[in-house]
Computed example of a mutant assay.
Amino acid sequence: MVASDLPIGDRIRHYRGERRQDVVAGLVGIAPDYLSQIERGLKVPSLPILHAIAQELGVPTTALLADMAVGSRASLDTTEPAIVRALMGYGSPCSPSSAEPTALRERVESAWRIWQSRKTRFTDMAGVLPGLIADAEHAARTARSAMDPAQRRSIMRVRADLYFLLRSYLRRTSRVDLSMMAADRAVRAAEEADDPLRMAAAQWNLGHVLLAAQELDGAEQVALRAVEELRRSPIAEPDRVAMSGALQLVAVVAEARRRDWSAARDRLRNHARPAARSVGEGNIMWTVFGPTNVALHEVSIEMEAGDTSEALQVADDVDTSDLPSMERSFTFNLEVARCHHLRRDDAAVLLNLLELEDLAPEDLARTPLARKLMLTVIRRGRTMHARQAEKLAERVGVF
Rank of each mutant, 00 (worst) to 15 (best):
E215V: 01
F164N: 10
L247A: 01
W204D: 06
A236R: 13
R225E: 12
L165S: 15
A223T: 00
A236Q: 12
V227R: 14
G207I: 01
G207T: 01
A246F: 04
R167I: 07
M147G: 15
L166I: 04
P196V: 14
I155M: 03
R188P: 03
D194A: 14
R167N: 12
A202K: 01
W204Q: 04
V158I: 05
V209N: 01
P234F: 07
P234R: 13
L249T: 04
A189T: 00
M243F: 05
A160K: 00
M147K: 13
R175Q: 12
L224F: 08
R159Y: 09
A213R: 07
A146K: 07
A226T: 00
I155S: 01
R144I: 14
I235E: 03
L230G: 04
D177I: 05
S179Q: 09
R225Y: 08
V158W: 03
H208T: 09
E229H: 15
P149R: 11
A236T: 06
A242E: 07
R144P: 04
R157L: 07
L170H: 04
S244Y: 02
A146N: 07
R185W: 01
P196E: 04
E229A: 11
L224H: 10
A246P: 05
A219T: 01
E228C: 10
R232I: 05
L206D: 15
F164I: 08
R232N: 10
M181C: 14
E191S: 14
L247V: 00
M199Y: 02
